[in-house]
Design a protein around this nucleic acid. Structure first.
Lengths: 140, 140
DNA sequence: TCTACAATCTACAGTCACTGTAGGTTCAAG
DNA sequence: CTTGAACCTACAGTGACTGTAGATTGTAGA
């Protein structure tokens, strides 16, 4: 007996909001579900699987566009997975880049906060550094 | 003799786009500049200072709202800088948190990409892991 | 069966920080 | 005087949701 989900149940199962589910349907990331006599959405197990995939990919930072691409690639399961791999690697590069950038920022913020004497604003090192990039010790 | 900037010149000096400058004016982050006889904006040195502050803060990841707060605090230079410090520390915490999250994601992505055999999609480890969070070794 | 009240429905506006476009006007160099 | 760059306003679009208003439907208890 196949399980059937209301939109609220499916949202809860997949850790997202009801509106998000309707949004995914609107942008055609998930197929339109059946409706009951009162026009309410009824989702199948297949919907749950697909939504889980989407949500997990989102948690890992993939864009909806990347997810759409991967999902469409998985429609041909016998094809080689080079393209899936390429998308994952591109995203990984992106993440590594972001981490580096954030690390630069962290260093600068730590230096600023540390240098602040807690005194008057007119002498505040934070305000000074924000005013003048050349007081920074790294690019960002 | 005070220097006067056209919008294009100021944008170039402060590493932002002309539209961004007009946007900052619209949301009242920078004061409305004088206009010349042909209705074109003419910026002063004070504008350049303020815009530099904003752009540098943005590069460090502060939100426009935080920047607005800091700027309004600096209107009273004789006040203590606790509040400025608090904003900077809050932002630093934010950055540190984001780095941690991205690191978790990086680890998971590296594991996935590494486990991919480059074979068929039906056997692709990437697709498998994306389908099922429980195959992950960390939270994210 | 009636009554609450929770869940769902559609449609649309708002978020953040810009970015891009269309269609017009002004400026500066040759 | 012409040409082309720079400027003007006003508005739509981005990504990935999130929130709201106002109406309808489903469900549990009296």
């Amino acid at each position: 007996m196949a399980k059937i989900y209301s939109i609220g149940q499916l949202a809860k199962e997949c850790d997202c909001k009801v509106q998000t589910l309707r949004y995914y349907e609107e942008i055609e990331l998930i197929p339109k579900p059946e409706r009951n006599s009162g026009n309410q959405r009824k989702y199948s197990e297949a919907h749950r699987t697909r939504l889980n995939f989407i949500r997990h990919s989102r948690q890992l930072g993939f864009t909806l566009d990347q997810i759409r691409q991967i999902l469409s690639l998985t429609d041909n399961p016998s094809q080689p997975c080079d393209q899936v791999n390429a998308i994952a690697e591109a995203h990984l590069n992106d993440v590594v880049f972001k981490i580096e950038r954030l690390n630069d920022i962290r260093v600068e913020l730590e230096r600023m906060v540390h240098a602040c004497s807690g005194d008057k604003i007119s002498e505040c090192r934070i305000v000074e550094v924000l005013s003048d990039h050349s007081l920074c010790c790294s690019e960002h």
